[in-house]
Nucleic acid binder design. Structure first.
Lengths: 232, 232
DNA sequence: CGACGCATTGACAGGGCTCAATTTAAGTGG
DNA sequence: CCACTTAAATTGAGCCCTGTCAATGCGTCG
């Protein structure tokens, strides 16, 4: 049972450049294109063939997948200093996911040809990205299993904890998810409806595990939430 | 809407070695260890720190994840000529999944150190594996979305089609899934119960979309199944 | 041929989705 | 600063899908 107050990330900028000497870093980053985006802008969407790899310099991205009937599933949030890819590196197949900004965002992006050259030139880049990809696979597999086997309340618990670990900030009241996260968002992330999420959060507020307001959640008792979510 | 009779794979041996000159292939493959396994053997399991990367030379692997309460979710099947990884390449974190053989299996495996050296020496290897990893992410995200948004019957349809594309074989009656696939397996793959799967398959048998026996399924009308699964 | 394991079918119940009606909170402009 | 608008959140009622459990049937393999 991991300590829920320890935050962990996936691939940060430094991990992306691991194994490469310092004075090459500016070269690699310099070959990318700097892009500024304002609130609610789509960085790339399903089937977009343009630029491929992004590092978030400032702000946060929401990665989601749209279903035919308008429903969506949130894949994950990409935080500042993390990396995400728009498309398969080699194949001409779109990476079928949409990235939307949460607040103001600044990124560096490399197109396919540039990134491919960079990876051939600096093998560690490909290796580091492979590691990041494997982490994502791990994350998805875990969530897939949860979705298959657990009841909604438990899944909401795990989801909230996962988001907390990735994007939480300590405050005097507990750990605050410091960006707009609506009941609907949490439902899309967990695979349920906003009504069910609302009911569950209401209960947890009564038992004192969380404090919540409009699009704001603070986990006041992470340990209680962890033991509930892991024991079921 | 893709043609369901076209089979597609993820990373085959030749894709793994793409971008590397022919006479290097034997060197790369030769640095791995050849392993024979008989039926039902576990190749690696959650937390196993030993060898990392495998190519299946013969037979088929079942990749699954176990849940605390004994339930399991099947991640995917690894066919002959395909590749799978036991662990993150760089980090000392286990790739938390268990691989079990389906029938007689032969693989080539590389341990962490060897594979890491190979990837530094031959950048295309890392790039190719990155592509494979991205395909898996894509697959998992798609299934995650389906699990979030679709009803069971539709999901069973998609799952069956997915397995068919990966492991189907044309026969005179239709497309046969040519390995033992029980109702329980399909349920674990789809995230439901064997009872529900059984009921659904019975219905489809009545409408003439499939023919099924004990651990054997033949899709007799793939197009009908596709339009059902995609329209919902 | 017998036994074990897989599959089928039925009955039942409940978790969670749907939909509708309110309430609350945030933002906006005068 | 307050009234007004708009979007998020809450809550309740009803019901359906699908999981659970039990009994039975059937195919396969030793």
């Amino acid at each position: 049972m991991s300590d829920p107050t320890q935050f962990s990330d996936t691939l940060s900028r430094s991990e992306f450049l691991a194994g490469i000497s310092k004075h090459e870093h500016t070269n690699i980053l310099g070959r990318g294109k700097r892009i500024k985006l304002n609130k609610g802008k789509i960085l790339f969407r399903e089937g977009d063939p343009a630029i491929r790899i992004y590092i978030v310099l400032k702000g946060r991205l929401k990665l989601y997948k749209l279903h035919e009937q308008g429903k969506e599933a949130i894949i994950r949030y990409i935080n500042c200093d993390e990396l995400t890819a728009a498309i398969a590196v080699f194949k001409n197949k779109a990476y079928p996911v949409t990235a939307e900004t949460v607040g103001e965002v600044e990124v560096i992006g490399w197109d396919k040809a540039t990134m491919h050259k960079l990876m051939l030139e600096y093998a560690p880049i490909a290796i580091n990205m492979l590691n990041a990809a494997i982490s994502r696979i791990d994350d998805l597999q875990t969530r897939y299993l949860e979705l298959c086997t657990e009841q909604v309340e438990q899944r909401v618990g795990r989801s909230l904890l996962r988001i907390m670990k990735q994007s939480g900030r300590k405050t005097k009241d507990g750990i605050l998810i410091d960006f707009k996260l609506s009941r609907q968002d949490l439902a899309d992330y967990t695979g349920t409806t906003l009504f069910t999420v609302s009911r569950i959060l209401s209960n947890w507020e009564k038992t004192g595990w969380i404090k919540s307001g409009r699009e704001r959640i603070t986990i006041t008792d992470p340990h209680a939430l962890v033991s509930f979510s892991e024991l079921g």
